[in-house]
Amino acid sequence: MSPKPTVHGRGAQSGSVSRRFGLAERHDDGDWLDAREEIDGPGPKLRTIVTEERPKTIVSFNQSPDIVFDRSINAYRGCEHGCIYCFARPTHAYHDLSPGLDFETKLFAKPDAARLLRETLAKPSYKPAPIAMGTNTDPYQPIEGRYEITRQILEVCLEVRHPVTITTKSARVTRDLDLLSEMAKLRLVAVGISVTSLDPRLSGLLEPRASAPAKRLAALGQLAAAGVPAHVSIAPVIPSITDEFMEAILSQAAERGVTSASWILLRLPHEVAPLFREWLEVHYPDRAGKVMHIVQSIRGGRDNDPGFFSRMKPQGVWADLFRTRFRLACKRLGMNRVALDLDVGGFRKPSANGQLSLL
């Protein structure tokens, strides 16, 4: 028999602390555990806790040789969407927190992000290039509805004419259509929405607090209709779980005016691998072995390939099959004909006091 879900409405089923850094770990033990709910009743509902933090900078720069951006902003740490496959989960381990349940319930918000961004852009040495948002945690996760940090960042970028790319799994992005449409007229923004499947039940298990697939597709249509460059990302493709939806996702996105698409195969770095294996045993025990066998065949015999370049280029017959299916579907639908061309020439550096420079 497969293990029963222990936490409903969340992606991870456990919250143990990472052992990568030698941290102590505690486990409940004893025969009483089998009768705990019968004796004590159900445990308290797991709540989302948000801590405000005050970093000194907000723009992160990287020199990674296999990603297309060199700077990014993450307004939040942790993500309430709870996507079980999220490659950002291991970052919570750096703070002595669990990449499992802590990652999706113990969140951090950065209310000073817009001010810090303005300070960075005002530096004499700063040279503009597109800032990527949503590369680690989702800028439109549920707590954005309260904090509006992402919106504040977009307001600064529109003011100073700085280009931005956005990746999200939330239909909440349409809240900012007023800003995004104005930025689009100036070639300052492109928005990608990730759609993993078309099955709302499956989506509820994989990414329990993200927008339903239909809402994400509708958001793509709204963006495209408003003139905002809209991109559909089939990410991640999970063999024998979500790959069956690839062509249908592309077709439905194309029907809504989306002309740009991409796909990313499942990645399982560090603690994500055991968390995903646990998820499979709970929800898909009948095919857990098959899924991991295919993943390992694509990743050189391991759960994950961490190597630069190779981590983004899955190998083997299964990867070739997904790649061919995607290419043929795009060709049939007339997708991937629009190149991303954001403008950096209109950037107007703000002064230290927050006013725009005349130079």
Rank of each mutant, 00 (worst) to 15 (best):
G192D: 05
D102S: 13
R256C: 05
A210W: 02
H162P: 05
F21P: 00
R54F: 12
L23C: 07
C79E: 04
S194A: 10
L154Q: 01
H8Q: 14
I193Y: 03
Q152M: 05
R337E: 13
L117G: 01
T135Q: 14
L202Q: 09
D341M: 11
A261S: 13
T91Y: 11
L121W: 02
D40K: 12
V156W: 01
R118E: 15
R209T: 02
V164T: 02
N62E: 10
D112A: 14
S233W: 09
M1K: 09
S170P: 03
G134L: 00
L340A: 11
T120H: 11
T174Y: 06
R325Q: 13
L154A: 02
S14V: 00
G204P: 08
F326L: 12
R348P: 00
K110C: 01
I264M: 10
A190Q: 15
L121N: 01
L33M: 12
C157W: 04
D96T: 03
R47A: 14
L342C: 08
C83Y: 06
D28C: 09
M292N: 03
D70Q: 14
R175L: 03
T168L: 07
Y94E: 14
Y126L: 10
G300P: 10
D178E: 14
I238K: 06
G301C: 06
E207Y: 02
D243H: 11
A329K: 02
P314T: 01
P200T: 03
I49V: 15
R201W: 12
K169N: 05
N336V: 03
G354S: 05
L266V: 08
I166A: 04
V344I: 14
V282L: 08
R267K: 12
D343L: 05
R327K: 15
K56W: 00
D102P: 03
G22W: 06
L198Y: 08
L202Y: 05
L328W: 10
E104A: 02
Q152D: 15
P3C: 05
L223F: 07
L268Y: 07
K215T: 09
F326T: 11
L265C: 12
S98M: 04
A212F: 04
N74T: 11
I264E: 10
M1I: 08
W279T: 03
F87R: 04
V232A: 03
P285V: 04
R19G: 14
A253M: 00
D138K: 03
E155A: 08
R20A: 14
P163F: 05
R277C: 10
Q252M: 12
P124R: 11
Y94W: 13
S240Q: 11
E52A: 14
D199S: 10
P90K: 06
R337D: 10
A248E: 15
V228T: 07
L186N: 11
Y140C: 00
L280V: 04
F69E: 09
R201E: 15
S64Q: 12
S98E: 09
A261K: 02
H27M: 09
Y94V: 01
D66C: 14
G346Q: 08
A109V: 09
V164W: 00
I49H: 13
Q222G: 08
P306R: 04
R327P: 07
K185W: 00
C157F: 03
Q152R: 15
V173H: 06
G43R: 09
W263P: 05
